[in-house]
Amino acid sequence: MMGDTLVVAGKAYDSRLLVGTGKYRDFDETRRAIEASGAQIVTVAIRRTNIGQDAGQPSLLEVLPPTKYTILPNTAGCYNAQDAVRTLRLARELLDGHSLVKLEVLGDAQSLYPNMPETLAAAKTLVAEGFQVMAYCSDDPILAVQLEEIGCVAVMPLASLIGSGMGILNPWNLQIIIDRVKVPVLVDAGIGTASDAAIAMELGCDGVLMNTAIAKAKDPVLMGHAMKLAVQAGREAFLAGRMAKKPYEAQPSSPAAGLIQKSA
């Protein structure tokens, strides 16, 4: 749909699908799947360089150049606010002062569930330092509102556990967050297949962020394209406004009048 853009931190994006860059077989598959998805914002992780082992190898940002994509550095693997803030300061230096970031502070390695007290603390520090923070969070509406009040530019509740592919487990909480929060709400984590993404968008989410659902599909390039279509379809269905559900009342779509049996 022309003109229906996702606006994050004052910048408009035609695509409402954000994708991660992890878990692909190689950089070529990464590039092709992301191109097929139409995503304009791509997440990256910040890690120690392998001293003496990387020389001559292409780097991710050569495959996905910041001139073509909005790079969204994340804090995956951080379990407290201090580590997350430190990681994003490095990311800002790495990306020439780019301030849009994905904050995720994890609670434990089994669930990768967000540690919300640490997420809130990190968000406060980062906003004070001029970062534009998109925050991975639990689907607690009160905490989502608090993230908005701190100054986050987007809140990104999980649909289900990171990498689980379990889809949207609590659409009702997402709905409350969508209703209460004014900044963009993006589902981040848990999408398994195209219908999950479409449901998120039909609920009224402003966007969807996913990685594993595309990277671990049998054909990641085809799934990238499927997700593009699903997000577009879900968005248009949301804007179109679905018909009311009528659980106990069937209504024919064809005229009741003019049936040939009645014309005797």
């Binding site: 860059t21 997440t43 992780a45 910040i46 120690r48 780097s59 790079i71 990498g163 996913m210 594993t212």
Partner: peptide, 10 residues
């Protein structure tokens, strides 16, 4: 000293 790069991640 820490030297970091961007790598694939979600």
């Amino acid at each position: 000293i820490e030297v970091v790069v961007a790598v694939g991640g979600g």
